[in-house]
C-alpha cells in the first residue's frame, strides 16, 4: 500500500518537475528541474523492480548527462538578453525546487521506513544485479559490443564537430 502511494507521489513530482523544467526561460534552471524529475523517475524505477537502473538513472542521467548540459551552457556564455523572453516569471524559482526535493526525500523515507508491502524496502519482484548482469552479458553480449562502438563513434564525432576553427584556406589543401 505504501509502495503504491509512493509511486503516485513520485509520479506527480516527476510531472510537476518536468512541467516546470520545460517552461523555464533560463536553461540552467530547466536543467536543475530536470535533475529533480530524474530523481523522481529513479524512485519510480526502483518501485517497479529495477534498483540497478534507478542507480544508473542517477549516476548517468542526473550525474553525467545533466552536468554535461550545465558545462555546455556555461561554456556558451549566453548573455541574459539572448535567453528567450520568459514564458513565466523568473523570481523565486528556488521555492518549487526545495518543495520538490523535500517531497522526494519524504517519499524515500516512506519507502525505506514504513513500507509494509515489501520486505526491507525492496519490491517483491526486482532484478538483482546478478540476474541483470547475467542477462546483459549473456543474452545481449553482441548489443553491448555494438553500444560500445556507438559510444566510441560518438566520442570521435563530438571531437570532430567541436574542434577549434581552422583557417579557411588550409581546408583546400587537406
Amino acid at each position: 500500500m505504501m509502495a503504491t502511494l509512493t509511486f503516485y507521489l513520485a509520479g506527480v513530482i516527476a510531472v510537476i518537475a518536468t512541467l516546470l523544467a520545460i517552461t523555464r526561460s533560463n536553461p540552467v534552471h530547466a536543467v536543475i528541474y530536470l535533475v529533480n524529475s530524474f530523481f523522481a523517475l529513479a524512485l519510480l524505477f526502483y518501485l517497479l523492480g529495477a534498483p540497478l537502473l534507478a542507480a544508473w538513472e542517477l549516476i548517468i542521467y542526473a550525474g553525467a548527462i545533466m552536468v554535461l548540459f550545465l558545462f555546455i551552457i556555461m561554456m556558451l556564455k549566453l548573455s541574459p538578453s539572448s535567453a528567450e523572453k520568459g514564458l513565466m516569471a523568473t523570481s523565486g524559482q528556488w521555492v518549487p525546487v526545495v518543495l520538490l526535493a523535500v517531497a522526494l526525500a519524504g517519499c524515500t523515507m516512506l519507502l525505506t521506513g514504513l513500507d509494509s508491502l515489501t520486505a526491507r524496502g525492496i519490491p517483491r519482484w526486482h532484478a538483482t544485479p546478478r540476474d541483470f548482469g547475467y542477462s546483459l552479458f549473456k543474452e545481449y553480449a553482441l548489443a553491448v559490443e555494438i553500444a560500445s562502438f556507438q559510444l566510441l563513434f560518438a566520442a570521435v564525432g563530438a571531437f570532430y564537430v567541436g574542434r577549434p576553427d581552422e583557417p579557411k584556406d588550409s581546408r583546400g589543401g587537406a
Binding site: E57, Y61, A64, I65, Y140, L151, A158, G162
Partner: peptide
C-alpha cells in the same frame, strides 16, 4: 541501451550546439 544511446546522442548534439 537507451541510456547508452542517450549518452552518445547528447555528446554529439551538444558538440553541434557549440
Amino acid at each position: 541501451f537507451l541510456m547508452a544511446m542517450t549518452s552518445a546522442e547528447v555528446s554529439i548534439s551538444l558538440a553541434m550546439v557549440v
